[in-house]
Structures are given as structure tokens and as C-alpha cells.
């Protein structure tokens, strides 16, 4: 089976700083693979191994994100045999349909594949729609919130999907696009060997020629007003420290 796992590179949200006017400064934040795309990479790695197939990763974004060699290596140390990139500085991709159109065009450029995997939602925008949109654009079957994947035959997968109040098992004809739930697995930490091998794997630059007009515009983006906290902190887990906590709770009326 030929698997393509989509992953987005994002600024680490823990390192985004808030400026006095409540706008965000993402410039100093380090880059990371969007947290829940790690689940897609892990699912792809497992499925490729089980089906005797291969996995390629695909990422779309600006040059400041995708030309970073450390992040490329990080993606390639997680089971992908190669990395396909669409580097695009002309679009902001703040609209999920725009991103989905670019991914669909990249998949057409890649040509053949059986399973396209996406994470539940990206760490920055968390729309949870891109995978569904990609599949719909390509007129392929799509399933979201996938919690289990098994190859049923060469041309079908048996997919478990967990909804709010039920679990369904679906027979999905291939090719198909699946968005995996963050519950599906716990991504493994790359081994030393995987990290060493990552640097030697091919990186392919794709060019796509697709109309990518946005359909929404951002009027404002501001950090929420911060709630002031007292931050009284005591170090220690001895009797004295616990007494201080009990006293605090009593003082507050609990």
C-alpha cells in the first residue's frame, strides 16, 4: 500500500509571545510538526509496515518553515521514506479550503497513492476539516475521527471511527482520505538509527499550478485579556508545605 501522511509545520504555541497591544509575535517561536499530525505519521508507519508498503510525507507551507533542515529531518525520522514539499510564499493558508486545494493539487502531482492520512486538526488553527475537504475535492471516500485502521484487502481498509456515542466499523474502498483521531496511537519517539537515516532520505519539491483564492479574511487577532493570578508558590511536599496549602484553602473559605 502506498501511503501519504500530511503534516503541517507550525510555530510552537508555547513559545508565541504576546505583545503589549495583545497581538502575537510568532517570529521567535521554534518550529514543530503539528502535534496531532504525529498520530497520522505513526498510523502511516504502522500501516506501511503491516501491508508491506511505503509511506511518503507531504507538507505545504512557506519557505521560512519548510526550508528548515532540522524540521525536514524530524518529519523523515518518523517512518516516511521520502518527503514531498510544496513551498509557497504567496498564500497565507489561513483558510482550510485553500490548504486543502493545495494538498489535493500536490496529490495529483504525486500521482498514485492508496491512503492519504491527516491528523485530527492542526496545532495552530485546529479546524479539523482539511482532510475531509481534500478527499471531497478529489472525489474520494473520506472518514474523520478514525480510531483504528486495518488492511482488509489490497483495495479496502477496515476503519474504526469513534463518534460521540457510538463506534462504527466501516469498509472503505481505496484510494481514500482518513483523518485520524489523536486517540488512535501514542506516537513513538524516533530512534537514533531513524534520526541518522532521516538525513539521507529524498526530499522532493513539487510545484502546483492551482487557483488558491481565500474565501475568508481576518479582521483581527488578539490575545484574550489575561486573568491576574496571585502565583504564591511554595517549594516542598513536607508537612509544612501541606499545612500552608490547607491554611490557604481555609482562608479562601473552602
Amino acid at each position: 500500500m502506498k501511503i501519504i501522511a500530511c503534516c503541517k509545520i507550525v510555530p510552537n504555541e508555547e513559545e508565541i509571545t504576546i505583545l503589549p497591544d495583545r497581538t502575537l509575535n510568532t517570529a521567535e517561536a521554534s518550529l514543530k510538526i503539528s502535534q496531532y499530525d504525529l498520530n497520522a505519521l505513526e498510523s502511516g508507519k504502522v500501516l506501511a509496515a503491516e501491508s508491506g508498503g511505503s509511506m511518503a510525507a507531504l507538507s505545504i507551507g512557506s519557505s521560512s518553515f519548510l526550508e528548515n533542515s532540522k524540521i525536514r529531518k524530524d518529519v523523515l525520522s518518523r517512518g516516511a521514506d521520502e518527503l514531498n514539499l510544496v513551498i509557497d510564499d504567496a498564500h497565507s493558508f489561513s483558510d482550510s479550503l485553500q490548504t486543502a486545494k493545495a494538498i489535493a493539487a500536490a496529490l495529483k502531482a504525486i500521482g498514485s497513492y492508496d491512503v492519504v492520512l491527516c491528523g485530527a486538526g492542526s496545532s495552530d488553527l485546529y479546524l479539523q476539516e482539511t482532510g475531509i475537504q481534500v478527499g471531497t475535492l478529489l472525489n474520494l471516500p473520506v472518514v474523520n475521527n478514525v480510531t483504528g485502521i486495518k488492511a482488509a484487502s489490497e483495495h479496502t481498509l477496515e476503519v474504526e471511527r469513534t463518534l460521540e456515542e457510538e463506534v462504527e466499523v466501516l469498509e472503505v474502498p481505496l484510494p481514500a482520505v482518513l483523518s485520524v483521531s489523536s486517540e488512535i496511537n501514542v506516537p513513538s519517539v524516533p530512534s537514533m538509527r531513524e534520526i541518522m537515516k532521516a538525513g539521507k532520505k529524498p526530499v522532493n519539491l513539487l510545484s502546483i499550478d492551482e487557483e488558491l483564492a481565500p474565501s475568508a479574511s481576518i479582521a483581527e487577532q488578539l490575545a484574550p485579556q489575561q486573568q491576574e493570578r496571585r502565583q504564591e508558590t511554595i517549594e516542598g511536599d513536607n508537612e509544612e508545605a501541606v499545612n500552608a496549602l490547607a491554611a490557604f484553602l481555609r482562608k479562601e473559605g473552602f
Partner: peptide
């Protein structure tokens, strides 16, 4: 909901707009 988000994504493609 999970089904709702699946519907929303499909609708957005057919209506050529963002979600």
C-alpha cells in the same frame, strides 16, 4: 459534532468556501 464536521467539510467544497 464529528459527523457535523464531516458534513461541514464536504459542504464547504461543494459551495467553494472555507469552514
Amino acid at each position: 459534532s464529528i459527523r457535523g464536521r464531516c458534513l461541514a467539510g464536504k459542504l464547504s467544497v461543494y459551495l467553494d468556501t472555507a469552514v
